[in-house]
Write a protein that binds this DNA or RNA. Structure first.
Lengths: 147, 147
DNA sequence: CATTCTAGTGTCAAATAGTGTCAAGTGGTG
DNA sequence: CACCACTTGACACTATTTGACACTAGAATG
């Protein structure tokens, strides 16, 4: 059972986000971890179990020098921060990441199997609507998938 | 734990930039240093622990004479300035470097493992957006890396 | 040569951000 | 409907960052 499900959670006045208990259980059991590595992703955030993050970093650092490697380092690796849970299961998200994602009061946390996405409610509404219309336009593709 | 994380800091009216406490701790512990060597880098600035800077200088000076060696000396080595922290953890950035990077009020400081980059907010927003669209366009590549 | 400007320094104190913890809400489950 | 686990808001406390101001050194001006 990987991370899954969509949760509306709130952010407290100091920038801490509650991570759903089911995700914390999963992390403890499958990854033996009490925290997450959070970084930028599009105009939201993404969080990985620390062990997964190490693998990703190793992959990026082994790329040959060039603009793609640099873009990954600049926009994914460098802004990343390991955040651990407090007694209430909240993580403190650094200010720069909160600003990047426009987090403020209402936040959506989504289990994406190997990773967890974190969006502001607004950004999530937008991206979900966009995805929905993409699916709409491809009735055949959807049918082929069995939907 | 090398330098990492992205911080929005401000520059005071005399051109001093606050360096995040986590970077200062790292410098003190791993490099036994109370300052940074700052120089030009693209249209921003980059800062190194003094011991790393010595190595870089040695590498440049051992190049065989030619336009590349000269360009390195002219644009990287010559403009560099060692800046030490004041009691509040700020460094004074020379005027010529501030002008080069267009620093004015809002500044972004980014930990890049062995070095620290310093950008004006505007320049950083631009470069990050550029990097982001490069990553966006290569979904396959990103998936291969494990993101 | 005296005076005025400007850039830079040192320091203080206010403002802001982050941490730890408690207890009140909330919603799901039996 | 009562219980329980989870989530949320709140508060006190600490650490960090920021704005302000007085002071110094050196350059520019008359």
């Amino acid at each position: 059972m990987k991370f899954s499900g969509e949760y509306n959670v709130s952010i407290d006045l100091k920038g801490r986000v509650s991570i759903p208990a089911s995700f914390r259980d999963e992390l403890r059991q499958k990854y033996d971890s009490e925290g997450l590595v959070v970084t930028r992703y599009k105009n939201g955030l993404v969080a990985y179990p620390p062990s997964r993050w190490e693998e990703i970093c190793a992959n990026v650092f082994s790329m040959s020098p060039g603009p793609k490697r640099e873009a990954n380092i600049r926009n994914r690796i460098a802004p990343a921060k390991e955040c651990s849970f407090n007694a209430q299961g909240r993580i403190q998200i650094p200010q720069s990441l909160r600003e990047h994602a426009g987090l403020d009061k209402d936040v959506v946390v989504i289990g994406m199997f190997e990773k967890i996405e974190i969006w502001s409610q607004i950004a999530h509404t937008l991206i979900a609507a966009e995805s929905e219309s993409m699916l709409d336009e491809d009735a055949q593709g959807q049918a082929d998938l069995g939907f």
